[in-house]
Design a protein around this nucleic acid. Structure first.
Length: 322
DNA sequence: TCGCGGTCGGGCTTAGTTCG
DNA sequence: CGAACTAAGCCCGACCGCGA
């Protein structure tokens, strides 16, 4: 039996028998909870700054802290978020001060958080002024890097680029399921339960990742080629629509991007990104993993082509970076 | 030239919504 | 009602440039 097929218990696993995914082994990170905590702490401070009540946030903050504590390095991660809020806050309030002189005081602050889907916005926080004006704040907190500008699912890729790889995806999925199934009796049981269950078991059986890549990577490469070809065939208006979607120009109101990466703060209004977009728009193949969108010969957006939860064993998507 | 901070690039995690 | 989809987020190793 090859080494890949041997069941590898994770650090928290006690039983020596495979549990077929009943055990949750994704305990190393808690990225989403940390982001939520960061956003909520920021909302709390912004409320204080605006002299608005924020007592209702304390329970939720407490819950998140308790959740993050359970993860590896949990308390360090919590401290980090607190620190980054302190560093970023003055830059945001400086910008808000300017607005207050023309729009009046802040009367309401709404944490959008995970409700972006129903709000249809990139904003994490909405701020309403006395004049009725509402601005959104999109905020990120990372140890390093700029974070994802946008994650584009297959539905949107179809809509904007006309990308259709349904058949290839189905074929890939079937191949992965049958190859996983052919490994041994445990994997046969897992494969029976479908691709999501296969995904849940990838840490216990490293061969799953290997098989996923075997069939997933060629599809990534195909999708890069297709996307580049399709983008370059679009009319100028349609190219622009795709870029507008990525950059968030479909927002109802002004959007302030406020993010902190390590100790470095960044602050800019979304509208300032319009200067990036010129009249000659082209997609440039960058190899097997992604492509660039260039404006007048200069790369402005990098698009990474991959799967959300591991190659071949989760949903396909393309991700945009500035 | 070496250490270190910043950026890049690939990948992973989470969770709300939708769909069969 | 659970699996799949979607789209937010963060992680982290590699790489690169710059000053001591």
């Amino acid at each position: 039996m090859s080494n890949d097929l041997i069941y590898k218990p994770q650090e928290e696993k006690i039983s020596s028998e495979p549990d077929f995914g009943l055990f949750d082994r994704s305990r190393k990170k808690s990225s989403r909870s940390k982001a939520d905590l960061f956003e909520l702490l920021l909302v709390k401070e912004l409320n204080k700054y605006s002299k608005l009540s924020c007592l209702n946030l304390n329970d939720e903050i407490k819950n998140l802290i308790n959740k993050i504590k359970l993860f590896k390095d949990g308390s360090t991660r919590i401290k980090e978020q607190n620190k980054r809020v302190r560093l970023l806050l003055p830059y945001i309030t400086k910008e808000l001060n300017k607005l207050i002189t023309t729009e009046g005081k802040i009367i309401k602050i709404v944490w959008i958080g995970r409700d972006w889907q129903t709000h249809k916005t990139l904003a994490d926080i909405d701020i309403k002024f006395l004049s009725g004006k509402i601005i959104g704040i999109s905020t990120k907190s990372t140890r390093s890097g700029k974070g994802t500008q946008k994650n584009i699912g297959l539905k949107e890729l179809k809509k904007y680029l006309g990308l259709n790889i349904d058949e290839e995806l189905l074929e890939m999925k079937n191949k992965i399921i049958s190859k996983v199934s052919a490994q041994n009796k445990y994997l046969k049981e897992i494969a029976k339960k479908g691709i999501t269950f296969i995904k849940k078991n990838k840490y216990r059986f490293p061969i799953i990742e290997k098989i996923g890549k075997e069939y997933g990577v060629p599809l990534q490469q195909l999708a890069v080629k297709e996307s580049v070809k399709l983008f370059n065939k679009l009319t100028f208006e349609k190219k622009k629509a795709f870029i507008n979607f990525i950059l968030g120009f479909e927002e109802k109101g002004p959007l302030l991007n406020a993010f902190i990466s390590g100790k470095t703060t960044h602050l800019y209004w979304n509208i300032s990104l319009t200067s990036l977009v010129g009249d000659d728009l082209k997609a440039v193949d960058e190899g097997s993993r992604g492509y660039y969108i260039a404006s007048n010969g200069k790369n402005i957006i990098r698009i990474q082509v991959n799967f959300t939860n591991g190659i071949g064993i989760s949903a396909f998507c393309e991700r945009a970076f500035l």
